[in-house]
Amino acid sequence: MSDAHAGDAAGLEVGFFLDWIERTASAVAAEKERLTSLDAAIGDGDHGTNLDRGFTAARAALEAKPPEFPGAALVQVGTTLISSVGGASGPLYGTVFRRTGKALGEAESVSARELADAIAAGLAGVQKLGGASVGDKTMVDVFVPALDALLAGLADGASVDGAFGAAADVAESAARSTIPLRARKGRASYLGERSEGHEDPGAASAALLWRALAESVGGRAR
């Protein structure tokens, strides 16, 4: 039996989204020290701690008040991140999830393509809020090429699993590609050329989110 193809309704339901958040929360917890040490080099050394606090809170919020549909789950995650993380990551990641969730509306089941389009809305929201473009050494450097890869994969008729997997691969390589860049946004920008030679912590955490998404797609019940 082959994988569902892009044209098929992938039928991602609320359970899939809870699984994605669960995998993201676990990945952030596991990589907390690495994210924090990346941040120590060019920021203030708390990115892992702050995101871990946020996703722990998001996980608890979803358990306390189980959402009824995918969009509600992501809006709830975004709102919780905004209320619990602080710093720049709270509003930025919170906006990604809130806008993605709002774009999904009240559908009980969404296709891979609908999810990709919703993530595009989330990305547009975060770019409007933070003002970052590709090359500024931020999470946007990961989101833009990963989303492009996902949309291209789905359009080419690749399997849904393959398209999300390729997007996660692109995300991870895009995070590493921030190493030589000079930061133009956020606290790392104060360092000027001294920000070069370090992976951006926000790009690194964004890659975790994309990998978790690919794993949830790969692991979903068919």
Binding site: D46, N50, I82, V85, G86
Partner: peptide
């Protein structure tokens, strides 16, 4: 007051 070196939240 936020966490150490971290902005407080909108709430």
């Amino acid at each position: 007051a936020g966490e150490v070196f971290t902005s407080p939240v909108p709430d």
